[in-house]
């Protein structure tokens, strides 16, 4: 009996999503009266794994070797399932980030485990096993009952608060047979240094109201002042004003930051579907009838070209950088 948490590495580092999954897994283990353990694949780790004990995991299994460099979900799933079986894990927890989305379904099949992807809360575990997840792009939620003995959960990014105690984890090597990757990475294009859109706590997003890509400077200034990631509406990405990976909404990226600032976006239902889980929404739009105001917490009815520079200045003042 135990809960196993997959610790995702991004360029050798343990990022926010993995800390969330570890906290979640440890709390779930405590709730089930069992222990939480982590698994990390690869040798090049620049984070201190022992420190992850602070989230409540007692032990971390590390599988060394070069076999994980290509990020082949087939290889990862085989090894994670091996560790789950060897440690007798009943529940395997992933972050529902880009790696979790590729690996968790495969692990679920290997373990003959029911899978809930996009979980947003700890399961109800008295008698049944009910996991809450968002459905209909955040317009509703569902409680999914997992009927198998083993379970796999993929936790949505930004939906669980990281907690730290003062525990230390014991890092133990795990010997596994690592199959050869069937895929080969031949190039990458990373926006290094910038926060990833799904992990960002603050997101500044702009729509067609900006008139054209040449006007994005004031949006970027606000994002820099707020230490925010950038996003946009679909027509903006379709018109190639912004890269498609910034497109949020029902058919783009779904996000749940603490603060979502939407400028020059009307707030169509398909746009809201990707951002309605944001904790606080600020809308700036010159049209008082824009539907976005109904979904907003704070708003300014005004022209973005006048409001945005003032907004940026005021933020700098509050943050003490002006």
């Amino acid at each position: 009996m135990s809960v196993l948490i997959f610790i995702d590495l991004v360029d050798g580092q343990v990022k926010k999503a993995a800390h969330e999954a570890l906290t979640y897994g440890a709390k779930l283990a405590a709730q089930m009266g069992t222990t939480a353990e982590g698994v990390v694949l690869g040798s090049e780790v620049s984070s201190d794994l022992g420190e992850l004990g602070a989230h409540g995991v007692a032990k971390i299994h590390q599988v060394s070797g070069d076999g994980f460099k290509e990020g082949d979900a087939q290889v990862f799933a085989k090894v994670v399932a091996d560790v789950a079986e060897a440690t007798g894990a009943d529940v395997v927890v992933f972050s529902n980030n880009t790696s979790g989305k590729a690996i968790a379904p495969r692990v679920a099949v290997r373990l003959k485990a029911g899978l809930v992807s996009g979980a947003v809360a700890l399961p109800e575990t008295d008698g049944s096993f009910l996991v809450r997840k968002n459905v209909f792009s955040g317009k509703a939620f569902a409680k999914v009952s997992v009927k198998t003995a083993k379970k796999v959960i993929a936790l949505n990014v930004n939906s669980f608060t990281i907690e730290n105690g003062d525990g230390k984890a014991e890092v133990v090597p795990f010997r596994a047979e690592v199959p050869t990757s069937k895929i080969k990475v031949i190039g990458s294009n990373k926006t290094t240094g910038k926060v990833s859109l799904t992990e960002a706590e603050v997101v500044v997003s702009a729509g067609r109201g900006m008139k054209g890509p040449e006007n994005w400077g004031i949006v970027e200034d606000l994002a820099t002042a707020l230490d925010a990631a950038l996003a946009c509406s679909r027509p903006v990405a379709d018109a190639h004003w912004r890269p498609h990976n910034e497109h949020v909404g029902q058919t783009g990226v779904a996000i749940a930051p603490n603060l979502y600032v939407a400028v020059g976006i009307s707030g169509a239902i398909q746009h809201l579907a990707g951002v309605n889980r944001s904790k606080v929404i600020v809308v700036i739009n010159k049209d008082p009838e824009a539907p976005f105001f109904k979904a907003a917490d704070y708003g300014i009815v005004g022209d973005v070209f006048e409001v945005l520079p003032k907004f940026t200045e005021a933020v700098k003042k509050v943050k003490g950088v002006a």
């Binding site: 029911g114 509703a140 939620f141 300014i300 003042k317 509050v318």
Partner: peptide, 29 residues
């Protein structure tokens, strides 16, 4: 079937927007 939806629900409605004047952006911040 390994899973089954036991229950659906709708999230609570928002309290409503607090509007700030465009001449007073500092108040928003």
């Amino acid at each position: 079937n390994y899973t089954e939806v036991a229950e659906f629900g709708l999230p609570p409605a928002k309290a409503g927007v607090k509007l700030v004047s465009p001449d007073n952006v500092e108040e928003l911040v």
